[in-house]
Design a protein around this nucleic acid. Structure first.
Lengths: 187, 187
DNA sequence: CCCTTTCTTTGACATAAGTCAAATATTTTC
DNA sequence: GAAAATATTTGACTTATGTCAAAGAAAGGG
């Protein structure tokens, strides 16, 4: 069982009152394709739990968009550093399709975490999971060339290749659009 | 103030009994240059808090060592995924000089974390800090070429350039030894 | 359903970085 | 302090990937 499943199970087993408190502190909202859930320069004061649809996180560098994470159903979207430090961040979060998400304000979750130690433990696990995910991404940049990174993505996250435009995938893989197109033509 | 200072301050302000409990659960040990504090394939069951000296974390890929982190005085050395999941990891931790470290067993810290909620909160902060650090490293691979990554290192971590052999620095920067040597000759 | 916009492919060429090999330079060890 | 081991530099060449440009394909809006 992977860590994400462990976390999911942990959440499922939380007492009813904790679930109630979480639901009470969050609101569900609908976004349209193209909507920005967070903009560069803003403090990320809310986390988005996707109920449906697709979103991405990206930043601008030299006028080019670099996508750093892509979210599907059940994923938790936020700009990590900005959220944790409550300082202005450099990332956008954009709806890549119409989507529904439950929005949890940072302060509300902080308060709940204080009240329910189980949520503090959950917070540890979520940060750990994110750090492990980042380690693996970094690992790929160290050890794989562009073709192998694309193949790894095909294996591990076929839903990315299925639903996401190449322009976005290329930046996510750290290569140019043209190189990605050529890789696909070759394999 | 950066997050590391915030964490350090948090630690300093922990109640005396917590400090006592932490000290009681850990032991101080001396390592010689070249000693391996952790080997590939082992479960990382202890964290190392460096009191003096230098260490690094690395893994082998295709017979080549790739250094992923370099530790100085006060840094906390561990193989994150292996430590968190308590599964065999792929990283080594090696003393790059003689060093002293206090060793905290995973299970002991778990027990203390349960007893003192303040340590659970500390654990969140440490994972957050590591994730933010990883995000920044990944960011550099996305946005900077080899020369700029080296310059960024010169700015941000001059102690690395001062004390660490180029072979290790090159792998840490994700480039070949020869390329790093040429970059240094040029700037 | 057509027009516009966005996305993808392909070609020609430029550039960053890797590899292999050998020469120096520096450090460590006996 | 000499020999051995390790670290660094340099040269010649190869390769992966980027850039610019243009054409073709697909998707979305009125």
């Amino acid at each position: 069982m992977n860590y994400l499943d462990t976390i999911q199970q942990y959440i499922n087993n939380l007492p009813h009152e904790v679930h109630q408190a979480l639901n009470g502190a969050s609101v569900i909202r609908h976004y349209k394709k193209g909507d920005l859930l967070l903009k560069q320069g803003e403090v990320c004061q809310r986390s988005f739990h996707l109920h449906s649809g697709i979103a991405r996180k990206y930043y601008l560098n030299d006028g080019k968009e670099i996508t750093t994470e892509i979210y599907f159903k059940n994923d938790l979207a936020l700009s990590f550093e900005s959220y944790v430090l409550q300082t202005p961040g450099h990332e956008y979060i954009e709806a890549l399709s119409d989507l529904d998400a439950s929005i949890m304000p940072f302060q509300a979750f902080r308060a709940l975490r204080k009240k329910f130690p189980a949520l503090m433990e959950l917070d540890v696990m979520l940060s750990e999971y994110y750090a492990i995910w980042l380690e693996q991404r970094l690992f790929q940049f160290y050890t794989l060339d562009a073709t192998l990174r694309y193949k790894a993505m095909l294996e591990k996250s076929p839903q990315l290749v299925q639903f996401i435009p190449l322009t976005i995938l290329a930046s996510y893989l750290g290569i140019s659009l043209e190189t990605l197109s050529r890789i696909r033509a070759k394999i």
